[in-house]
Amino acid sequence: MADGRDLQIGEVAELVGVSTRTIRHYHHAGVVPEPPRSSGGYRQYGLVDVVHLLRVRRLVHLGLSLAAVKDALADRPDGDGDMAEILQELRDGLADEEARLAARRKAVEELLARPDGLLQSASHQHALTRLRQTRPVGHPGLDREAITGELVEAAVGHEQSESLWQTYELIAEDSDLSSQLAVLSEGFEGLAEASADDPGVDELVEFAARLGDAVRALLPRDIMDGDGDPASAHHLLDALAVEMSPAQERCLRLAFARWAKQS
């Protein structure tokens, strides 16, 4: 053709390195103007269109949205426009993303460095070690304590869970309170096969209530404080109760309700 528009969409797609569907999408989004059509209704592309599409593909691969690409190339077929400003914003965004990835990589490396692939924080591991020192060998509640701790960390965040693990340290130093909590934990595990109406539930709840402030100090602030998120507390209780017997779940919910009223 006299104006040099003798390329069809399939040929352009091959030259640019995208699919014909992608080119049509660029047209639909207004990123690339529609070329003239032949008498038969086929799009007819020229080299200017190919260059424009190459620029669009390059910017998209850099991470720009189609809206940003459209702004960068608007009314400037030579591709200048606000390109410098947009690329600077992209550079800043990539720097932020690199910082986030570095933080995630550091967290993964810390997890890999822990013994036996444990996912607990260092403070949580230390708290569990101190807890085991206050419990008889083979105490049935230790495994549940470890799982509960991970759920608590996920629910209330690192800072609040750190204060919880510090409280474990204080409890471990109080032999009388440690003994009472061991009895409480063993009684709870004793309900593993019990139904919700087991009389042991109410007895254990009463025993837990008598521990008062010491027990409440072990609980996440999000659950105990009035300004905490009730939804978070509800979801945490649901998560804790997943593998519990009906008696254990009822005991847990009643105990939490009693402790909340006492706070």
Rank of each mutant, 00 (worst) to 15 (best):
A2E: 14
G4M: 08
L7N: 02
G10M: 08
E11N: 04
E11A: 13
E14P: 00
S19R: 00
R21H: 13
T22Y: 05
T22K: 10
H25Y: 15
H25W: 09
H27C: 03
H28F: 01
H28V: 01
V32W: 02
P36W: 02
S38C: 09
G40H: 08
Q44R: 15
Y45E: 10
Y45F: 15
L47S: 12
V51W: 09
H52Q: 14
L54V: 11
R55N: 12
R58E: 15
R58P: 01
H61I: 03
H61T: 11
L62K: 09
G63P: 08
L64H: 07
A68E: 15
K70R: 15
L73D: 06
P77G: 12
D78G: 04
D82M: 01
A84E: 11
E89M: 12
L90P: 01
L94I: 08
A95E: 10
D96E: 13
D96Y: 01
E98Y: 00
A107E: 14
E109N: 07
E109S: 05
L111H: 11
A113T: 00
Q120M: 14
S123L: 12
H124C: 05
H124W: 03
A127T: 06
T129Y: 06
T129K: 06
L131P: 02
R132T: 06
Q133E: 12
Q133W: 10
T134V: 05
V137H: 11
P140N: 06
G141I: 01
L142G: 00
L142S: 03
T148R: 07
E150I: 14
E150R: 14
E150H: 10
E150L: 15
G157V: 06
E159T: 05
S163F: 11
L164K: 03
L164N: 11
Q166K: 09
Q166G: 05
E169C: 05
L170D: 09
S175K: 12
L177F: 08
S178P: 10
S178A: 15
L181D: 02
S185K: 03
S185F: 00
E186V: 01
G187P: 04
F188G: 06
L191T: 04
A192D: 08
A196G: 03
A196R: 11
D198W: 04
D198L: 04
G200P: 02
E203M: 09
A214T: 07
A217G: 14
L219D: 02
R221Q: 13
D222N: 14
I223A: 13
D225W: 08
D227Q: 06
S232I: 14
S232R: 13
H234L: 12
H235G: 00
A239W: 09
A239Y: 07
L240W: 07
A241H: 07
A241M: 02
V242F: 10
E243R: 12
E243K: 08
M244G: 03
S245I: 09
P246R: 10
A247N: 06
A247C: 09
Q248D: 04
E249M: 02
E249V: 05
A257F: 00
A257S: 09
R258G: 00
A260G: 03
K261P: 00
K261Q: 15
